[in-house]
Design a protein around this nucleic acid. Structure first.
Lengths: 206, 206
DNA sequence: ACCGTAACACTAACGGTTAGGGTTTAAGAA
DNA sequence: TTCTTAAACCCTAACCGTTAGTGTTACGGT
């Protein structure tokens, strides 16, 4: 599976990593606004243009690590056991993600983000992208036959839950309070609750 | 009530209006990215610094008109009749707002917004602000005794509905589909559904 | 008539970002 | 091995949104 990576790719990855590490260190040391792109480039010993060939913007330097957020959520949908209901699976994953970024070790980074309007805006856009790919994943699941609108809506709600819980005083309690709301919203979209049949069709379409 | 506005205030308002009009015209003529701040200032016959004393950013020039969005939503909460349920009132207002900005006359502006990442980001931040003030208005209503988390969550959901409906192929249908979900989520937050009492306590806490 | 100041102008700069153009070096073909 | 190609990188200079610093004008209250 793992193709033996050539020297070129390794060097490129190392450059990228050095830039990201340097940037995060400087940002935390001196504050995001007090550090210029030229500072980061100089300290990482690369040209400014090289920096921008690895990262699309200054803000992207901060969110380097959380690139797998999107994938974790969509995989929580795709990888769940057959007929395992959707919302609890998402709740579990959101819970884990919230805990991850409210951990003490991540606190300084998120304080920095909360204090910078530019970083907040950037994270908001990220969330929208995540909501869209989550919506796609939900819509693609054959077990859950819902309209595109319903999938898109639930995806937004789930991302909202992440955002709200992250900012809450007690993140775990917030998740506990928000997800029943999402569950109720999702229940309200059941396609047709028709003929009560064999009785063991529980968990389908959930 | 209306204090006879002096010449000074009138001139200031005229300058602001001229800047906004000029900007919107140029943006629609040549495209948002193709028009620089210096272009707008020159064409409006003001200094760049004057432009920025009226508008906080280039993006703010575009959203000049929709400044009352926030107020309309909070007032839909505050001004509703006693014991009138919350969600239908919000639904009515969102419906109106969505229709307003999907009208043919507004189409070019919103196309421009959708095509510019900067404008999209700006609108996302606006929505967050709106959600927060809506949450405050809901939390302040004594008829609806819900937790701060529940109010914040519902506020987000309502703003999501606006955003999703605005982008939907059939905005009215989207509203019709999303608001039952929000209604269900809101129902799930009823504080204590206890003693079935006199029977005419409908509409309270709704 | 006078003064304080709000509104505006001008210049110059800062900081993120990009274009243009050149150099090195890894990777693969001859 | 040697040659060729192109990816990765460098440097310079600029563009563009935005702000600071510093006046100038003219309205409004005294």
């Amino acid at each position: 599976m793992t193709v033996p990576t050539g020297r070129r790719e390794r060097k490129k990855a190392a450059t990228r990593q050095k830039i990201a590490d340097t940037a995060l260190r400087l940002f935390l040391e001196r504050g995001y606004d007090a550090v210029g792109i030229r500072d980061v480039a100089t300290e990482a010993d690369v040209a400014v243009t090289t920096l921008f060939s690895h990262f699309a913007s200054k803000e992207a330097l901060v969110f380097e690590q959380d690139a797998d957020f999107e994938q974790r959520l969509t995989q929580a949908v795709v990888d769940r056991a057959p007929h395992e209901p959707l919302i609890p699976a998402l709740r579990h994953e959101i819970q884990a993600l919230v805990r991850h970024c409210t951990a003490d070790s991540a606190a300084p980074i998120w304080r920095m983000i909360d204090e910078s309007p530019a970083l907040r805006k950037y994270e908001e856009s990220m969330r929208l992208r995540h909501a869209e790919s989550l919506a796609t994943a939900i819509a693609a699941d054959p077990d859950l036959s819902r309209t595109a609108t319903a999938c898109g809506t639930i995806a937004r709600f789930v991302i909202d839950a992440y955002s709200l819980a992250r900012e809450a005083a007690d993140p775990d309690a917030a998740v506990d309070e928000i997800f029943p709301m999402i569950e109720a919203a999702w229940e309200a979209t059941r396609p047709t609750p028709p003929l009560p049949a064999t009785g063991d069709d529980r968990d389908t379409q959930g």
